Simulated scan of single mutants.
Amino acid sequence: MMAMQYSFTLPADYDMSIIDRRIRDKGPMLDGFPGLGFKAYLSARKGEFGSRENLYAPFYLWQQPYGASDFLTGPGFEGLTQSFGWPRVKTWIIWHAETAPALGDAKFAAEEVIAIEPYSALADIRDEEARRAQRQARQADVLASVSAFEPTRWTLVRFSLQRSAPLIAGSSQIYRVGHVSLP
């Protein structure tokens, strides 16, 4: 299992209704994509929920790496790059992921990327992150809780999908969810 995300920072005066329309029109095209756990179509508006930028930043949970490969080499991603440019695609190895049956009802997402200190006890961090994700998944409003790490830049990501707007905490980025594609 792996997580994946790319992000496009848009100008401060960008008409974000263009992104909303894109999500509405193209979002269902990935429903049922092979190997997909979920794709959350995310956007953030500058000044809303503490966001410093306008963003379009889809987040994926892949059950199988071949799904990510098929998507990135396919026509959907090619069309995206023609519209918005060539993004840096971040990937993480899953430590723990839980999803609720009502995952498609998500309206908000929260994401926090945290640096892992050199020489940290990774097994201890993994175990604590798994426990944290499990506790979070038991909250009534939470529809997905993902904890994962990336050993190239040594970061961990905490990601959740929720029914209502989460509290802004620390360096979290809050997003609106326009659509959730499911397997």
Rank of each mutant, 00 (worst) to 15 (best):
M2N: 02
M4D: 10
T9H: 14
T9W: 12
A12T: 05
I18A: 09
I23L: 03
I23M: 06
R24P: 11
K26Q: 07
P28M: 02
M29V: 10
F33H: 04
P34M: 00
P34F: 00
Y41G: 06
K46N: 07
G47L: 11
F49D: 04
G50S: 06
G50I: 00
G50L: 02
Y56N: 08
A57C: 13
P58A: 05
Y60I: 05
L72W: 14
T73P: 08
G74F: 07
E78G: 15
Q82H: 15
G85W: 04
G85R: 08
W86P: 03
P87F: 15
P87W: 15
R88L: 15
R88V: 13
V89I: 12
K90Q: 15
T91A: 13
I93L: 14
I94C: 14
I94P: 13
I94R: 13
H96S: 09
A97Y: 06
A102S: 15
D105E: 15
A106H: 04
F108V: 05
E111M: 14
V113T: 10
I114Q: 09
A115N: 12
I116M: 11
A123V: 09
D124R: 10
E128G: 07
E128I: 04
E129Q: 08
R131D: 04
A137S: 04
D141T: 02
V142Q: 01
S145N: 01
S147D: 03
S147G: 06
S147N: 06
F149C: 02
F149Y: 07
T152E: 03
F159T: 01
Q162T: 02
Q162V: 00
S164V: 08
S164Q: 12
P166W: 06
G170A: 06
G170Q: 07
S171F: 08
Q173R: 14
G178P: 11
V180G: 08
S181R: 09
